[in-house]
């Protein structure tokens, strides 16, 4: 990126100062409520698996699977993007948002075929999350191993 000229910087500052700000309070409340609701649903599902006699560790896997299924289903039905427009990070951060970020491109690129479309584009959005998530996990694991050796 080239350095901005003085004229560009002056304009950019002026334009940025005048543009409408996102409604932060409203967005935060919406994210809190919807994010909380998604987590409550997750808790209900977790409790259900616990009631089947699983322990906490065992119940985690199937709970995540159900939440991913719900996120994918709502994406396929064309509902999740509407939730996202309302809730912002509230529906992006939970695991259902992760499902949405994979199913949305997969659906959309089906028309370019199953290999170069669905296969290649599925991780367009989620790819960076996976790469840096795994890299971070690996680094933390290494650190933990070194400390506890």
């Amino acid at each position: 990126m080239g350095k901005l000229t003085r004229e560009q910087e002056v304009y950019k500052r002026w334009a940025n100062a005048r543009k409408p700000k996102p409604p932060l309070v409203r967005n935060t409340i919406a994210a809190f409520l919807v994010g909380g609701l998604i987590c409550t649903i997750g808790q209900i599902i977790l409790n259900f698996f616990l009631s089947l006699g699983m322990n906490l560790k065992e119940a985690g896997g199937p709970t995540a699977a159900v939440m991913i299924f719900l996120g994918a289903l709502l994406t396929g039905l064309g509902v999740y993007d509407r939730i996202g427009k309302f809730a912002g990070a509230g529906s992006v951060v939970p695991i259902t948002g992760f499902a949405n970020s994979i199913v949305a491109p997969a659906l959309e690129f089906k028309r370019e075929g199953y290999v170069m479309g669905v296969g290649a584009r599925m991780f367009n959005i989620a790819g960076p999350v996976l790469v840096y998530g795994m890299a971070t996990a690996w680094l933390v694991g290494l650190f933990y191993w070194l400390v506890h050796k």
Binding site: P22, Y80, D81, G84, A87
Partner: peptide, 10 residues
């Protein structure tokens, strides 16, 4: 993608 749940700025 159009089905991605993102919030647009004003």
């Amino acid at each position: 993608p159009t089905e991605l749940g993102v919030q647009k700025p004003p």
